[in-house]
Structure formats: C-alpha cells, structure tokens
C-alpha cells in the first residue's frame, strides 16, 4: 500500500466521492427497508398500493433517513470540533458537558410544559451556557494538553448530569417516562430541515478555516506561530460545536458514541487533515446513524429499538477493532 504522506485535492475529491456514494447507497437501502414490505419502485406503479407506498417511503422513511443523516453529521462534527479544541481524540460533546447542558435545558423546559420550540431554544441555551462556563473557568489554560479545560468540562458534565437526575426525580411520572425515552434517542418525526440548514451553515463556515484548524490541533502556540488567530478559532469551535450539539439533541434526543467514534475511526483510516476530515466526518456520522437506524427499526419490526442503544452496541466494537488494527500496523 502506498503511504499517504499528505492530502492532495485529488485524494480529497476521491474520498468524498466514495463517501457520497456510500451515503446514497445507504439512503437507498433505508428507503427500501422498514417494518413493512413497501419498496420505492412501487411509487410508480399504478396499483392501489402506490398511495400507501408513497406515504410509507416518502412521508416516513425519507424524512426519517434524512434526519438520521443530518443528526449523525451534526453529532460527529461536534465531536471532531471539540477534539480539535481540546487536542484530545477522546473529547466529545459529553466530555465537555455540552450534551449535558443541552439536556438540562430541554428537560427543564419539558418540566415547565413548554412548547417544542421553547424546548429547542432552552436546549441550545443550556449547551451554550455549559460551554461558556467551561471556557470561562479554564480560559487561561495555556498548557499544551489543556488538562484544566478537560477537567473543567468533565466537572460541568457531571454537574449537568446531576441536574438532569434532579429534574427527572421531581418530574411527574408520565413526563418522566417520555423524557427517559427521549434521552435514548428517537429519529421518527425528527425535524431535519432546520437541522440540515444548521449543518450546512456550519460546514460552509468551518471548511475555509480547515487548514487553521489543522495547525490549531497541533497546539495553540504552534498555531499562533504559524499565523492563526487562535483565540477567535477557539471561540468559533466552541460556538459551532455547541450549536451542533444542541440542534442534534433537540432533534433526536441524546444519541451517544457518534461524536466519539466517527471522527476517531476516520482519523485512523483517512489521516488527520481537517480539510478532508471535516466533510468526511459529517458524511461518516450521517451514514453511521442512518445504518444504526435501519437496524433499530428492522430487527424487531414493527417494534423499534432505541437508536442510541444500537449506536453504542455497534460502535464500540468497531472502534476497538480499529484501534487494535492500528496498533498492529505500527
């Protein structure tokens, strides 16, 4: 195998084309599979079933699949951004307390009986607040490993977890059941349009900075020496990862492991150049969640498994295998 010493435009285009193809294949599979036997090609038949097929394929499977792609993309992107920010490949929205903040915000709003728009806004506020808290407490940390930032994030995440438990324990029983299931993740009926726009917007905002993010991930001082505006980049990463997390959490509940596993796995396979890793992570995260969703709604059909359980069950072994394979190569 030829060693890839550096990323070229051709390699970027080739890999992105392959990932796009994979996405389309998965999307097609997702449209074909479900708890019922309807298939997309029945749309164009003139049988009485065509109407039903239209409802099933276009109104249910398509939006759900798109939601999986978008939410998976957002989660994976949030993980990648926080890994760059912390220079730690194990960072993800959970470590920094971003997901925790978002869920506290959402739970509090649910408890107060707020509408779904307010729940989303409240989750976003929670994500930003926990992010700002972490940043404010650890902003003067110039150490290369930024250990204080990481520890502060872990502390804030624990605090958010405790707040969530508190909210859940004072919640009425019926609400509690809904909230707990909501926390396991649910893609049915997840709004994908707004989330998709947010994802696209963040990509357009971040990709031009990808080379700066490359050198930022080598350390703040190195990035400064190479002419990057490290402080602004850090704020950008913070806001972008918070917004991505909040949108993902409010769209589909708490789904774990995508933000941790997808960027890490892609790093092992594709190298670490953010110019490739950023768009690849978005597509990879989308594909991973879409695949998990296909499994979650077909294995026990018409019963469904929580998609968060599937991502955890499938993601962790794959991650371990990649890690081990990499160890052997060296």
């Amino acid at each position: 195998m030829k060693e890839h010493t550096h990323l070229t435009r051709q390699r970027l285009a080739l890999i992105m084309a392959a990932l796009l193809l994979l996405t389309l294949v998965l999307l097609t599979i997702s449209l074909c599979l479900g708890s019922t036997a309807y298939r997309p090609w029945q749309l164009w038949q003139s049988t009485p079933d065509a109407q039903m097929a239209r409802d099933v394929v276009l109104q249910l499977r398509l939006p759900r699949s798109l939601a999986a792609l978008v939410v998976g993309g957002l989660l994976a992107m949030a993980g990648l951004l926080q890994q760059i920010l912390l220079r730690n490949p194990l960072a993800d929205p959970y470590v920094l307390g971003t997901s925790g903040g978002a869920s506290v915000g959402a739970l509090a709003a649910l408890l107060l009986g707020a509408s779904s728009v307010l729940v989303s806004l409240s989750a976003g506020t929670g994500a930003l607040a926990s992010t700002l808290l972490v940043f404010a407490l650890a902003r003067h940390d110039h150490s290369s490993q930024q250990s204080r930032l990481l520890l502060t994030g872990i502390a804030v995440a624990s605090f958010a977890g405790a707040l969530s438990s508190l909210l859940l324990s004072i919640a009425p029983d019926g609400l509690l059941r809904g909230m707990v299931f909501w926390m396991l993740g649910d893609l049915a009926g997840a709004p994908w349009q707004v989330a998709g726009l947010v994802l696209l917007g963040l990509l357009i905002l971040l990709w031009p900075c990808a080379r700066d993010l490359n050198i930022l991930s080598h350390g703040q001082q190195a990035a400064h020496a190479l002419g990057s505006q490290t402080r602004q980049l850090q704020w950008l990463l913070y806001f972008a990862s918070s917004i991505a997390t909040a949108v993902a959490v409010t769209s589909a509940g708490l789904i774990g492991f995508i933000g941790l596993i997808v960027p890490h796995a892609l790093r092992l396979v594709l190298g670490q150049d953010i110019r490739l890793l950023l768009p690849a992570t978005v597509l990879g995260g989308g594909c991973t969640l879409l695949a998990a969703d296909i499994v979650s709604r077909t294995v026990l059909a018409p019963q469904q498994l929580p998609v968060g359980v599937v991502t955890a069950l499938a993601g962790v072994p794959v991650f371990l295998w990649l890690l081990q394979r990499r160890g052997r190569q060296q």
Partner: peptide
C-alpha cells in the same frame, strides 16, 4: 517570524511531511 516551541508532540496522527508542510501555512 517563525517560532519553534519546546512542545512538539501531536495529539493526532500526523505524518512527518504533513508536519513540515505546516510551515507553509502563512
């Protein structure tokens, strides 16, 4: 102005050529 700091570990996999190419960033 270039600055070589004492710290030169990378948290992520990075090839030697990629490292050298970072010098071209500015």
């Amino acid at each position: 102005m270039a600055w070589l700091t004492q710290q030169d570990d990378s948290a992520f996999p990075l090839t030697v050529l990629e490292k050298a190419l970072t010098g071209r960033h500015p």
